[in-house]
Simulated scan of single mutants.
Amino acid sequence: MPEPHLLEKFLASGWVDATVFTLRPDYRVMLLGVEGLVPGPSDQASDALLQQAESAARETLRDRPVEQVPHVAVWREAYRAFGAKPQRTRNSLEALLRRAASGLPRVNRLTDLYNAVSVRHQVPVGGEDISRYAGAPRLVRATGEEPFDTVADGTTVIEYPDPGEVVWCDDAGVTCRRWNWRQARRTQLSDDTTTALFILDALDLMTDKALQAAADDLVTHLTRLGPDVRVVHRLIAAAGGD
């Protein structure tokens, strides 16, 4: 049994650096800490959710290209603001929408759930294994010295973010590059994850009400993954809007 209030302590320790809010004062993040999950590979239920998300994506893209979807376009603006080229490094929402036509990936049921919610609500969502964290989660402008473990040509490699890049990190290094572009292997969800952190990123086009609706949708599906699932949430915004 996890230590009482462990999730609350973990979420309370997280923070967003002031330089990120200077870049995008409209930024808000909903953090969900979840314990008691019964993990496993993709299953019939997660596949059905992804099929619904694929249908929603086809409808979204019926009369416009991906880059003109408003919630995609605003994240492209945010990427340009810290020097990233969005046509080369796509925000996670855009990447999923582009894959929807040929089929969204089936990874494991935790990842499948948050990918489906991301597409259905048009919000970037990330999932991390809390047991693999070293210290608090925080969103900062990188110095360029933080290690990031990833895979290139089938081989595990260590890369480093560009100075000024917006990254999620902990005491051991980067957990997600370019805000919500690519997650590190170290903290990624697996078939064995029982305690997870989910990160829902919002910019001005997404209202607090819509952000909460996306979080509620994710929680609804997560609570079906075990009889003892418990969820703690925290909203972080600029100017003390925590």
Score class of each variant (00 low, 15 high):
residue 2 P to W: 13
residue 8 E to P: 08
residue 10 F to I: 14
residue 10 F to K: 12
residue 13 S to M: 08
residue 14 G to A: 15
residue 17 D to Q: 10
residue 19 T to F: 05
residue 20 V to F: 06
residue 25 P to Y: 02
residue 30 M to Q: 14
residue 36 G to I: 08
residue 36 G to L: 05
residue 37 L to K: 08
residue 38 V to F: 07
residue 42 S to A: 13
residue 56 A to S: 11
residue 58 R to I: 04
residue 60 T to Y: 10
residue 62 R to P: 01
residue 63 D to Y: 12
residue 65 P to V: 00
residue 70 P to E: 02
residue 73 A to R: 14
residue 75 W to S: 01
residue 87 Q to Y: 11
residue 90 R to A: 13
residue 91 N to S: 13
residue 92 S to Q: 11
residue 95 A to V: 06
residue 105 P to D: 03
residue 107 V to W: 11
residue 109 R to G: 02
residue 109 R to N: 02
residue 111 T to N: 12
residue 112 D to E: 01
residue 112 D to I: 01
residue 119 V to H: 03
residue 120 R to N: 07
residue 121 H to F: 11
residue 123 V to E: 07
residue 123 V to F: 08
residue 124 P to R: 05
residue 130 I to G: 01
residue 131 S to T: 12
residue 131 S to G: 02
residue 138 R to W: 06
residue 141 R to N: 03
residue 152 A to G: 06
residue 152 A to P: 00
residue 154 G to P: 02
residue 161 P to V: 00
residue 168 W to E: 00
residue 170 D to I: 02
residue 176 C to N: 09
residue 178 R to G: 06
residue 178 R to I: 10
residue 179 W to S: 14
residue 180 N to V: 05
residue 185 R to E: 15
residue 187 T to D: 01
residue 190 S to T: 15
residue 192 D to T: 11
residue 192 D to Q: 15
residue 193 T to Q: 00
residue 193 T to S: 14
residue 194 T to N: 05
residue 195 T to E: 10
residue 198 F to K: 03
residue 198 F to N: 04
residue 199 I to K: 01
residue 200 L to R: 06
residue 200 L to S: 01
residue 205 L to M: 09
residue 206 M to Y: 08
residue 208 D to T: 13
residue 208 D to Q: 14
residue 215 A to R: 08
residue 216 D to F: 08
residue 220 T to G: 10
residue 220 T to R: 14
residue 222 L to A: 09
residue 229 V to R: 08
residue 229 V to M: 08
residue 229 V to D: 07
residue 231 V to T: 12
residue 232 V to I: 10
residue 233 H to A: 13
